[in-house]
Design a protein around this nucleic acid. Structure first.
Length: 153
DNA sequence: GCCAACGTTGGC
DNA sequence: GCCAACGTTGGC
């Protein structure tokens, strides 16, 4: 099983939005970065666990956890001219962007803030803590995953 | 294939 | 709002 961290801007999609979805599940659409796409398309498996992370907001940090509940499939928004994620170069025969479905698992009683994560020398290899990191989906090692899970207890 | 220009991300 | 870091585009 693999572990991930997935960023979302709370103004566009919050963890409460996820909780309100039917089956508390959402397609993780709108990713338009090849590295992030490749991870969803090639590496994510049903049962993988992911942190829900808020970026670009007052208190960036990890709010809870989710689980991957589908294989990867083409992101439907790439074919929709009305969508802001529309990609004119993509066709149903040759899709460019892929996604997986994610299901809500847990919301922490308190956010684990970016500031709090930075204070732990143990997490120095966590990708989102590296300078200049902008990738919206990053892998998390099992040891970092369990360390972070324990932080909120 | 190089690389300058431009656009985006995201913490601060 | 600033700006560093990074990704993408497109001329050559």
């Amino acid at each position: 099983m693999n572990y991930w961290l997935m960023k979302s801007e709370p103004t566009s999609f919050s963890i409460d939005d996820l909780i309100k979805r039917p089956k508390q599940t959402t397609p993780w659409d709108g990713v338009r970065n090849y590295q992030a796409r490749n991870m969803m398309r090639d590496q994510m498996k049903i049962g993988d666990q992911a942190f829900f992370y808020n970026s670009n907001c007052d208190v960036p940090g990890i709010l809870g956890t989710m689980e991957v509940v589908s294989e990867s499939y083409p992101d439907p928004t790439q074919f929709d001219p009305e969508s802001k994620y529309f990609d004119p170069k993509a066709t149903p025969d040759k899709p460019i962007w892929f996604l997986v479905d994610l299901k809500f698992k847990e919301k922490f009683k308190q956010i684990i803030s970016l500031e709090q994560l930075r204070k732990n020398p143990y997490l120095e290899d966590l990708i989102i803590l590296r300078k200049g990191n902008r990738l919206s989906i990053t892998p998390v090692t099992p040891k970092d995953w369990s360390f972070i899970i324990k932080l909120h207890c």
